[in-house]
Structures are given as C-alpha cells and as structure tokens.
C-alpha cells in the first residue's frame, strides 16, 4: 500500500503534468507537419458585377494592322482585347531579341470608363508620377484620328520624370471615346524605347478600325 506522502506527491506531479500538457501540445503542434498535404475543399460564388462584363457591353468591333516588328502577346489579361510587344524598330528585321520591348495593350470598355481625367490619373499612378500632372498632360495631349474616323487624344508621359527616380518606365497612350464606348491603346515600357516606338504607335492608332455595331 503506497504511503499517503507518496500519493500526495504523485497527485501533485500528475496535476502539474496536466497543467504542462498544453505547452507540450503546442510545442508538438508547432513542430509537426503531416506527411501528405491535405487540400481545403469549399464552394464559392464568383464576384458578380451588376453591369456584367464591361468588355461585352462595348458596342464595337476592333481590327488593326501591326507595325513592322510588333508581335502578338499570348492571351493574358482578360480585360485586354489584345496585347503586343513592340521592339526597337531598328531591330525589326535583324531577328534580334529586344529585352526592352514595349508592352502595348488594346482595351475597349463600355461608356466613358470612368472619364478621361480618372484614366489619365490611373496611368500616371502606374509609373509613379503624381496625379497633379494630369491637367498638364491632358493640355499637352495631341489629337489622333483612327481609320474609321473617330477622334481621340494621345497622352505622352515620356518627358515627365517619375516621382520614383528608380522608375524607368513610362507611358504613351491613346484614348478614343465614342458613343457608349472608350478604346485605350496604351504603350508602357522603358522611356527611351517608348520615344523610339512612338511613331509606330501613332501609325497603329491611325490604322485602327473601330466598327460600331448597329443596334
């Protein structure tokens, strides 16, 4: 028969052991990982837009002619109608790869897409130029007319230094607003390369066809 002293010691040890269990458990849990990854399974309802997909609402059809050397990008951003790489024009026929090829995107949206000012501010933000330049950029914008007659403007940020001096990218872009739609042609890339491809970008815009669908 164990002595009462032994029993009391055992009970105390057991109780202290029980109190320490959470610590040991936590330490074990933090150190252990299962061998087989176990997946989470769940159901979710995708984001719903009241207006539906904006691109589908645009009452137009776009067609274009690529300048020399430009190549199609693989399908990527679903908002884009199309994307292209625009390399240095001097490399167009040499077959050399241009690591600084400019990313050109073609986007069509329904309505005014938030308005001219908001979109210029958004583009400025993408290359870290303060929004306060928007007014100056719009005032200095040059007009553009596409092959089907619609008019727009071309904004050029290449002569504005970014607020972040490590940012070497800039934007040249055209915004063409029509009845119930807006078309964006945006070239974004290295500032010097943009200056080189700007004539091609203007040529691309001038040859752009915006066929308005009849209701």
């Amino acid at each position: 028969m164990p002595s009462p002293r032994f029993l009391s010691k055992t009970r105390a040890a057991l109780l202290i052991g029980a109190a320490a269990c959470p610590l040991l458990l936590a330490l074990l849990l933090s150190g252990c990982q299962g061998d087989e990854p176990q997946p989470r399974r769940y159901r979710e309802i995708a984001l719903k837009s009241k207006n539906g997909p904006v691109q589908a609402d645009a009452p137009i059809r776009l067609s274009w002619t690529l300048p020399d050397g430009w190549v199609d990008q693989p399908e990527g951003d679903p908002l884009r109608q199309a994307g292209f790489w625009a390399p240095d024009p001097s490399l167009a026929h040499t077959g050399e790869r241009d690591p600084l090829a400019v990313d050109v995107s073609l986007v069509q949206l329904a309505g005014d897409a938030g308005g001219l000012d908001a979109n210029v501010v958004r583009w400025l933000g993408q290359v870290k130029i303060p929004a306060s330049y928007a007014e100056q950029v719009i005032a200095a914008a040059s007009p553009v007319r596409v092959a089907t007659g619609q008019r727009g403007i071309v904004v050029d940020f290449t002569d504005i230094l970014s607020g972040d001096l490590t940012e070497s990218k800039s934007i040249v872009g055209a915004i063409i607003q029509g009845e119930g739609y807006t078309v964006f042609v945006k070239a974004m890339g290295d500032r010097e390369r943009l200056v080189k491809i700007k004539p091609q970008l203007l040529e691309f815009c001038a040859k752009l066809n915006i066929a308005e669908k009849t209701p």
């Binding site: 990982q33 990854p37 997946p39 989470r40 399974r41 769940y42 159901r43 979710e44 309802i45 995708a46 719903k48």
Partner: peptide, 13 residues
C-alpha cells in the same frame, strides 16, 4: 453555374 467547386492547397504545402 455561378458557383466554383474549389480544391486548394495552402502555400505551406
């Protein structure tokens, strides 16, 4: 329809 049936592995895996 508008529901996604998802199977996902977390980045720790």
């Amino acid at each position: 329809a508008d529901t996604n049936e998802v199977l996902a592995y977390v980045d720790e895996d």
